[in-house]
């Protein structure tokens, strides 16, 4: 099994954010969701760089929304997880679970 079959840490977080946000997932909401849940400041550049990588791998797709005045006439780019992406997040999640089995880990906040 190649290394590409698993998601990196930030890729994993981004895909989970997309799954949570469903059809409301675009740059602002993804960034805010991650900041809210992980308590770490994330740049929009890091979010887009990772989303571009995930799109290249076929794990997410994107489409443009309508331009809106509050965005200076610029459009949103909405993202959605593909079946391949959902399979990758599952695989990564199970691999992490298997690796932590027997270590006495409690899934509480550090």
């Amino acid at each position: 099994m190649s290394r590409r079959d698993y998601l990196g840490e930030f890729e994993h977080i981004i895909v989970l954010a997309l799954l949570r946000l469903e059809d409301r997932a675009y740059g602002v909401t993804v960034r805010q969701e991650i900041e809210l849940r992980t308590q770490r400041e994330v740049s929009i550049g890091a979010v887009y760089a990772t989303l571009d990588r995930l799109e290249t791998k076929g794990y997410v797709t994107s489409h443009r929304g309508e331009p809106t005045p509050e965005r200076g006439g610029r459009s949103k780019r909405f993202f959605r997880v593909t079946a391949k992406g959902a399979a990758a997040v599952n695989r990564t999640h199970h691999a992490l679970q298997r690796m932590t089995e027997g270590l006495g880990f409690t899934w509480s906040h550090a």
């Binding site: 740059g27 602002v28 929009i44 887009y48 965005r71 610029r74 780019r77």
Partner: peptide, 9 residues
């Protein structure tokens, strides 16, 4: 377009 729009929002 999307990056500058997100930041402006």
């Amino acid at each position: 377009d999307s990056i500058l729009g997100d930041l402006l929002e």
